[in-house]
Design a binder for these strands. Sequence first.
DNA 1: TCCTACGATGGACTCAATCCAAGTCAAGAT
DNA 2: ATCTTGACTTGGATTGAGTCCATCGTAGGA
Lengths: 152, 152
Amino acid sequence: MSDLLERLRGRGWRLTSQRRVVAEVLDGEHVHLTADEVHARATLRLPEISRATVYNALGELVALGEVVEVTTDGRAKRYDPNAHRPHQHLVCSGCGLIRDVHPDGDPLAVLPAAQRFGFAVSEVEITYRGLCPACARAVLPPTPSIDPGTVG
Amino acid sequence: MSDLLERLRGRGWRLTSQRRVVAEVLDGEHVHLTADEVHARATLRLPEISRATVYNALGELVALGEVVEVTTDGRAKRYDPNAHRPHQHLVCSGCGLIRDVHPDGDPLAVLPAAQRFGFAVSEVEITYRGLCPACARAVLPPTPSIDPGTVG
DNA sequence: TCCTACGATGGACTCAATCCAAGTCAAGAT
DNA sequence: ATCTTGACTTGGATTGAGTCCATCGTAGGA
């Protein structure tokens, strides 16, 4: 984390307490916070930080390549600090839980030239969807082989 | 298209002029309109149709599995009527143009069990990004091997 | 310590989407 | 053909996410 702050300062990023707090809030594995969540957590450490400042800092971190935006639903963007390890996302259709995942092989390779329509394709974003273990348990009956209509 | 309307009516979908126009506007290949674009086109045929009705009709078509929502940028959702042929999307980073594409193989197969974290994974959405031919021409100099500084 | 250009603030604003109460109408029943 | 009714449409208000901007504050170099 302090590596990150040093690196950013080395690139001429003026280090303010607000920016430091935003960067610190985003530290960790499998972190995918919305801007409002970042703001809420930053507020715990720096009560007067404004939403605009959080948006500014997040936008700069994205532009600097330190954080990636992910949009897994049609709602708020999420900010993923795991920008230096290429990865994709696995999202629970029930509760929205997000995990970083690493598929086999090069995801770009499966798109044949004939399917590229002359595009210079350079990036792929993949979202896998399904039920997480907790949501699957909540949906399925405990003993699914027994017809509920015949019980009791 | 009339197949679609018949099918929906068979499923108890009350057929109104508004719904008919929304379904007709969405007909075609490589169609990826936003709700506002659908509304604008619907208005040409049915001047008094409201935005709320367009949103309602689109939401119902999605729930019925006849249309899929796609979110290729952080902005408005787009509606893709090509719901019965599984496909992915190729998006131009320059102009936002969207093409439907068909990658090789089963996109789910490349996610190893160890990367599924116990999820029952059932869907994949892939977005390929790159420059379309027109945007690539606009960015590159016409003869890229010649240094512009040495010309003229 | 002082300067100043860059950053932070917060309130107004935009854009996408949803909600709601009241009016309208598709389609089955008579 | 007309009636009836519950589902559909309307448009204005509202919400949620994000951006803009004039003003104030401050990081960090001289």
